[in-house]
Nucleic acid binder design. Structure first.
Lengths: 224, 224
DNA sequence: GCACGTATGAAACATTTGTTTTAAACATTT
DNA sequence: AAATGTTTAAAACAAATGTTTCATACGTGC
């Protein structure tokens, strides 16, 4: 498979190799020769198929986050809002847990996903691909998350709901963005196999508590 | 000041220029000539004073996080544990808010601090400086945070306390690590001036709710 | 089978990169 | 003031980098 022939296959191998290397070492840390080597293609192939290293990078991100979008749809993370209205409170809580588990699985795996690593790098050095990441990954996750939270705490305003969604995403991203520090503190070389599930459970409970407190606080403020 | 003479001043200007550029563009994105240019020193000065680009980078991180440690002490973020025992519950909650405000101020400013940007980059490409960052910045913050949380929810175990501390730090780091996406979504070019305080207040309330819920859950589990 | 647009391979090119060299300027001591 | 060790300056170096060139192989239409 990795040695398949044909122009289509070459392009695909290039994208694959470039995606892995850009994730591993970043844009500046990856050389055109590295990519050609790992993809087992000629050095000139990159420029022939994509024009430049920068364009290859952008194409990698577009391809990768197009995959993510499809994956989110496949896992039914993006649902029609009306569907949520039919759920009871325990069902909503269960859904919130499931959603968080999906998010954690995408963030830290195992193995850690390529696109979350690429996203992390884009947050250090934003490029023209940032809008793609926001539109294909961040916004969809945020939107349904906010809908769930809104229904779990009907009293509170949209701004507070958004802050709570940020709080949840922040807790999840923590394990992706600070992995090296976490591993160093825990003297490990990789995350425990079931960390994604464990952490998802914690985040969900923690956030339900936070949401409840803010609902009360907001309710009191709104009442007086 | 930037044109001061003498070997000491040259070294200092080099460190300063290098710190800013490494934060702005990362290690691979910064060239020795960039640094020499911004520091208004000769190209060879870097190698004379530090040996190599890599060594200069490590020295920058050591210097920067040594500053951070001093700043944390100055702000009395690190307190003797016994001091906490004398505080009432409202005082502890107030302290938690203050601590979170300090953390947010260090993370997103304004302006965003150099060291938090350098830390973010180390999480993408860990180097030999990672242990320094953990020891001088992350561990001190985590430890006192855990102590406060432990006293706010005396019933729960150390592992849960640690997870809650991660949850709080994660919420705070979110605004540092995803700043480009946040700004893109909100169509802004910089964070609102008072975001640090606003967010700190939200995180504190949200987390108090989360802590409370976990305390109840854990209490019930421990009881049965 | 042959021509023609497409894709690949090997080499070369022009810059840029981190680093080194060498000499001059400076400061400090004797 | 001479000598000595330290710091700065300018130029050069070798290696690496993104990109281009050009010849060759490939596939697909007539």
């Amino acid at each position: 498979m990795s040695t398949q022939r044909g122009p289509e296959a070459t392009r695909e191998r290039l994208l694959q190799a470039a995606a892995n290397l850009f994730a591993e070492r970043g844009f500046h840390g990856t050389t055109a020769r590295d990519i050609a080597g790992r993809g087992a293609v000629n050095l000139a192939a990159g420029h022939y198929h994509f024009g430049s290293k920068k364009d290859l990078y952008l194409e990698v991100l577009r391809a990768e986050f197009s995959k993510v979008r499809r994956e989110l749809s496949r896992r039914r993370v993006i649902r029609p809002p009306a569907e949520l209205d039919r759920l009871s409170r325990p069902q909503l809580m269960k859904l919130l847990l499931t959603r968080t588990e999906v998010m954690m699985a995408m963030l830290i795996g195992p193995p850690p996903s390529l696109h979350s690593t690429l996203m992390q790098r884009e947050m250090c050095d934003p490029s023209e691909a940032l809008p793609v990441i926001v539109a294909e990954f961040i916004q969809p996750m945020m939107e349904e998350l906010e809908q769930i939270l809104q229904r779990l705490a009907p009293g509170i305003g949209a701004e507070v709901v958004e802050s709570c969604a940020f709080s949840m995403v922040g807790q999840a991203l923590f394990y992706r963005f600070t992995m090296p520090a976490w591993l160093h503190i825990k003297r490990r070389t990789s995350y425990p196999r079931d960390l994604a599930r464990t952490v998802a459970a914690h985040i969900t409970e923690f956030s339900l508590g936070g949401l409840e407190r803010l609902a009360h606080q907001h309710g009191r403020q709104g009442a007086k």
